[in-house]
Design a protein around this nucleic acid. Sequence first.
DNA 1: GACCTGCTGCGGCTTG
Length: 861
Amino acid sequence: MTKPAVNLEPALKWFAARGWTPFEFQREAWMSYLGGESGLVNAPTGTGKTLAVWMGPLIEAAIEGGVSGGSGVAEMATPSVKKRRGWRDGAEPLRVIWLTPLRALAADVQKALSAAAEGLGLRWNVELRTGDTSASLRAKQKERLPTCLITTPESLALMLSYADAAAKLGTLRAVVVDEWHELIGSKRGVQTELGLARLRTMNPGLRVWGLSATLGNLGQAMEVLLGSGGGGSGGGRLVRGEGRKAVDVETLIPADIERFPWAGHLGLRQLPGVLEKLEHGGKTTLLFTNTRSQTEIWFQSILRTRPDWIGQVALHHGSLDRGLRARVEEHLKAGTLRCVVCTSSLDLGVDFQPVDQVIQIGSPKGVARLLQRAGRSGHQPGMVSRVVCVPTNAMELVEFAGVRDAIAAGAIESKMPLRGALDVLVQHLVGVAAGGGFVERELLAEVRGTHAFGGITDEEWAWCVGFARGGGAAMGNYPQYARIVEGEDGVFRVASPMVARVYRLGVGTIVSDASMTVALVRGRRLGSIEEGFIARMAPGDVFTFAGRLLKLVRVREMTAYVEPAKRKSGRVPSWQGARMPLSVELSAAVRVKLDEASRGVFESAEMRSVEPLLRLQQRWSGLPGPGEILIELAATREGKHAFVYPLEGRLVHEGLAALLAYRLARLKPRSFSMAASDFGLELSSPDEFDAEDSTWRSALSTERLAEDLLACMNAAELARRQFREIARVAGLIIPGFPGQARSQRHVQASSELFFDVLSEFEPRNLLLDQARREVLERQLEFARLRRTLERIQGLRLLIVKTDRLTPFSFPLWADSLREQLSTEKWTDRVQRMRVVLESAANEPVVRRQRRSTKGALRADD
DNA sequence: GACCTGCTGCGGCTTG
């Protein structure tokens, strides 16, 4: 429909004269942009995605005459436009906002964008505005915004919360959302949607462009980004970069499968092979692990074997101090490191051109995740991304065989956008009220233009406005929750400057985990560890962190002070992270590999290597074929066990284990202990398990699924904990001021207190509903669990009684045993038990305090 | 006889 308002030929000629031919998809994006459209660009990293989108606004500006005199593109500008414009170089008003989800990317983007503008003869101001931005630059930006502003979703929300927002942002022509795939599935994505809706209202005709890695639902990702209010005239254009980036997936096959562990996730058995790769596989390697503690352990192990590599190997994970991480990134860019051992903290990133090899230790958990990591190497057009996969246990060989198939088939995970996150909406209402105010009907229409709130009912909307207005029924008496007021002109504004201030303190949707700062006695900050880990240690104890051995000296406030230890070994902290399950796509790929194995097909190197083990599984128990699901019944010293292998990822298996235990106990009262992995689940009991098909069929039924699951999962307690995030995002809990460390335990306690009060006095509070919904969706993966049970309905149950643990069941058994036995010394255990008993003894007092929240807390109880 | 799981990300007052 839309005819581009400009002729691109002069620009192309200009590029050609400089020996550069743009890719077809880049031209498509520019043309579309110049024609007034919005859209989404999907292309492999390192192929010029950034340029594809950035060139649109640049060419537009050049053609309009915003060029520095005499430059090569001056001929693109029509004389009349040139004459009309009075702007001088570098003094143009805000034209483009570039949103990035990661502060660390901002400076690199700035460099790239400035260079591109320079190359086109434009002297554009490209400035950063993130939490790191200095006070002086902020002050300058309060006066005047640059031509291009690189910022984050949170900082955008902040800018929208100042009274002059409309005036400052009213000249905007385009917003680019970089790494949209990182945002879309989270509340940060919802916040971005709301911010974009605001900008569209201020700037009709605004063009929004996203950049995204490959997702299973790219079309939907674009729709969400553009909203129903966006999309220009054509409803949005999806631009795909041509050709797939070549990815070379190699697996480090264990030398001797007979001696290769059946269980475990650390993978140190493969250290010699990995060292060999580090030495000869490339100059610079990123070594990805799945957990922070694993990073620490691998780092130590590498240096213990190769002390001559000290200074050439670094480590990088999310609990390390930002300064330390920044230094590692610099060295990486400079190409002076042989290897960085890291977690997802380096999944995204700066174009690390020197990286020529990526190693993945253990399960990649998802297809997209492995591709993302592989893409960190060969980060240039035409270069091949290489990843070496290192299995840490036998079944991971099957996983790697599966992931290769999935990549070949293009089976990439989707990221589902969130809908109806009312906590984010409440936060937004306060922000908009601070940023010049809103008329209710108008803002409702704007918010309904987003995907996240396209379906919001009048009642829900009224509830949210009422909540921001008075804190809802239960909080109505507390003035600090009357955050917005309606003026006589019908405009809602913040009730006081204090409200705006508190909003700015708490902006954003990321709620951090409980953690304690770790710092050297002399003062340097090293990072953070969970409170619980430090609480279990006494001064003088030694632990490993940030790649060093540290001795705990003392704990003050929320900081653990340490000094270098002389000992050679210490405990490694573990962090309570999210428990990422095997993805839907990868699970399916693994099931296919096992189907093949059951038919005697072992085609890849991975499958041939694991063949003896799978044959053993077949002999001792069985291999589920197509249309079958395996249930093993076994007896050990610990009791009787039932193992079920749906292969649907850990979260589903946890829910399913609880569900099966609940349903089996209903048939015959008894108690179970449970374990779950990405492959299956285990129930243990002193009593024999029933081998009847009908018993298991009814236990695996989809009937009354939600009721049974809620009954057995202690959903109320889960929701209570989930409420912490919601209370924080909705502004019920006010974080401490900067620099005032506030114990997260405190935050947790007060959010639980809110939950209890609301449940009692305002059970219809919609945020409580949201907490329950989030538990179902996120912690239980309810939809996936239901689909799993539906799938099982159509399968034949292969129920096998085994004499011993099998290759499938051993890892589950070992897992559950680890929970019962501790590797720590007996005295430590007694000490810990005493602490546990003491706190258990104190429990009733705590509970009584919580209950008596109507009055003040009784301190003397 | 085999077993050391649990990621990432943002932001902030005070005003001469």
